[in-house]
Amino acid sequence: MQLNREELLKAYRDMRLIREFEERVHTEFAAGGISGSVHLYAGEEASAVGFCMNLTEVDHIASTHRGHGHSIAKGCDVKGMMGEIFGRSNGLCGGKGGSMHIADLEIGMMGANGIVGAGPPLICGAALTAKTLKTGGVAIAFVGDGGSNQGTTLESYNLAKVWNLPVIFVIEDNGYADTTASSWSVGGSQTKRAEGFGLPGYRVDGHDFFAVHKVAREVIGRARAGEGPSLVHARLTRYYGHFEGDGTTYRAAGESDKARAERDCLDIFRRRVTEAALLENDQLDAIDREVLGLIDEATAEAKAAPAPAIEQLFTDVYLSY
């Protein structure tokens, strides 16, 4: 293992922060405080954190409709995110975007996205910027198994290859596109699709932070060295439905409970680092408490924040018009 103690603590905290954030959104949504719809990332944390731990602010990511985890992993302010999800003026996007459009371009987060498969072309653009302006940056498109079937995604494999862009496509395969099983909807294999376009393809257990981190380091290193794009297929589990309110009747009975019990990324991480005596349980418990306090604060602040002023309806359409 090549991570030092600070890095391990950060990895654990980021994953815990995502989990706590999503659990809180889950309960607040059920309580009726959040309008619209939200898509929760709980269970998939190791993927976002395993990749983003290898990035800096010159690097870009594009996310999906299930974007809270990627946003937190890339460094978005969780209070701003919570405010945004509540549609408040203190939101990261002033309450104009909501859950599906959380973005912070200053730190390279190009946005959650309401359009499945929209991220890959955009991230090719971010990579083109990095390449043209020689920033040294790389760009990662997180794509669901549903998005992997969009033509935009497949076209982007090709464009990234022929332009030799510093791009990584991460297929986060949680087994379902809405209700439709990826075992049915995806023809062929994700990695062989990549290989068909000339991209190295990797498979990884998305529940295992260390496995993700290792492959992420390799493909990001390749991209940064100018050796071109890669694809990583991560298998993982979404604990909740497609959106909050989804009865998940299409899933096997007890499917996500079983995953929580046996394959939870936080549990796996804790076991590995304590068994190897890299970190103490006390340290991790302290992080749990600190994160819980932060989420309590973020929630309280979001609820207390005023709604956006009506004039905000008309601003930010153009820079000049």
Partner: peptide, 28 residues
């Protein structure tokens, strides 16, 4: 060729890439 970029026949990808490049610092 770094600034005059021929593309595959792939409008979804390269128009999207132009949008992404614009949002990240180029003026495509």
């Amino acid at each position: 060729r770094e600034r005059v970029l021929d593309t595959p026949i792939s409008e979804s990808a390269f128009i999207g890439a132009a949008a992404g490049a614009a949002a990240t610092g180029l003026r495509p």
